[in-house]
C-alpha cells in the first residue's frame, strides 16, 4: 500500500542499489521515519549524485538515479 501511495521511493536499499548513490536524506541526522510516506516526503528531494564523481552523472556518464543505479550497470558497486 505504501509503495502505491508514493510516486517515488528514496529508500535506497542495501544489496539492491549501488553503494555509491547519494541523496540529501543520507547526510542529515534524521531517523528514518517508520512510515515510508512521511520519510520519503521529507527527503525525496529527487536530487541524486554519485559519491565517486560527486556529480549527478556516474563514471559511465549516465545519470545517477535509484532506478538505474542498480546491479547490471557497469559502474555499480553492490
Amino acid at each position: 500500500m505504501e509503495t502505491e501511495e508514493n510516486l517515488r521511493s528514496t529508500r535506497i536499499v542495501f544489496g539492491v542499489h549501488c553503494l555509491k548513490i547519494r541523496h540529501k536524506g543520507m547526510y542529515v541526522s534524521y531517523e528514518p521515519d517508520p512510515d515510508p510516506a512521511v520519510y520519503n516526503e521529507l527527503f525525496d528531494s529527487g536530487s541524486y549524485w554519485c559519491a565517486q564523481t560527486q556529480t549527478s552523472f556516474g563514471p559511465d556518464g549516465q545519470p545517477v538515479r535509484p532506478d538505474i543505479c542498480q546491479g547490471g550497470r557497469t559502474c555499480c558497486a553492490l
Binding site: 529508500r11 536499499v13 515510508p36
Partner: peptide
Amino acid sequence: PNFDQQPPAGGGAP
C-alpha cells in the same frame, strides 16, 4: 549514509 537494511517492500528501520 543511511541505507535501509531491508528491501523496499518491507518495513523501515526502527
